[in-house]
Amino acid sequence: MQLNGKQVLLTGGNGGIGKALSAILREQGAHVTVIDRTAGENTRVTNLADADELDALCETLKVQRVDILINLAGLMYFGHLPEQSAAHLSTMLTVNLEVPIRLAQAVLPGMLEREEGQIVNIGSVFGSLAFPHFTTYSATKAGLKGFSEALRREYAGKGIDVTHIAPRAVKTPLNDAKIEELHRRTSVTNDSPERVAKHIANAIVHKHKNVAIGQPESFFMRLNALLPGVIDRALVGKRDIANEILGSYKA
């Protein structure tokens, strides 16, 4: 796909990955509109967790040309499941899962009318390799993966391409001190936002269906699908490390 002149809508575009991705897409001639809570270049400031603001955005998108929708915005929670507040859980479910679905609903009619369009959902390896203490985050990313697969099959042959991309750990402000310590103690590799952005841009241009970034994570995702018990046992030790870290940060 040639990106020159394409109208791109990117949620979470003012974050680490988003800024790097916007720059790449603009270099290739795309017109990128960013949806973010913070102001930035060509940004529509929107709180996607606010029902009224989300409704207003969807109404706008129904009459606005969008050639490529990139659902990047997301929230993370690392902690014991009972300690996640109901408010934070609700916001995470909205931003990580409801928002991509709602935005896809809004742009699909126009794409179908033009018989061309691409929806790109940025998930996580945790969507296929669920990690203890990232329980609700893993659940939302698994849901996004399922949505992407079903959507692709629903509109096969209609000119709509659906791309799902699963990065591994990325060095962004989403990683607080506890997560950084977990990564260090479990030897997790953190990719740079720039590296991830390049993978996303490449997947868009080549219309890839499913992309998992990084090894050995990609291998373990496939192994988990075949032998989940093996992964269960492998992650018990990491769970215990996470318990130690979470305990050490309690007030």
Rank of each mutant, 00 (worst) to 15 (best):
M1G: 13
L3Q: 10
Q7F: 03
V8M: 11
L10I: 10
G12R: 08
A20W: 08
L21R: 10
L21G: 13
A23S: 15
I24P: 08
L25G: 06
E27F: 00
H31I: 05
V32Q: 03
D36N: 14
T43C: 00
D50V: 03
L54Y: 01
T60G: 03
V63D: 06
Q64I: 11
R65W: 00
L69Y: 07
A73E: 06
G74V: 04
G74A: 14
Y77L: 02
P82A: 05
P82C: 03
S85G: 02
H88R: 00
S90C: 00
L93F: 05
T94I: 08
V99L: 01
L103K: 06
L103H: 09
L103R: 04
A106V: 10
A106C: 12
V107P: 02
M111D: 07
G117Q: 08
Q118Y: 08
I122M: 12
G123K: 06
V125G: 06
F131G: 00
H133K: 07
T135R: 01
T135G: 09
T136C: 05
T136Y: 06
T136P: 05
A139C: 09
T140W: 03
K141E: 07
R153P: 06
I160H: 06
V162G: 09
H164V: 12
R168E: 11
A169G: 04
V170L: 09
K171P: 03
D176H: 11
D176S: 07
E181T: 06
E181G: 03
R185Y: 12
T186C: 10
N190F: 15
I200Q: 04
I204A: 13
K209N: 15
N210Y: 14
G214Q: 05
P216E: 12
F219K: 13
F220M: 15
L223Q: 07
L227G: 01
I231T: 09
A234I: 09
V236F: 12
G237C: 05
G237F: 01
I245D: 09
A251E: 13
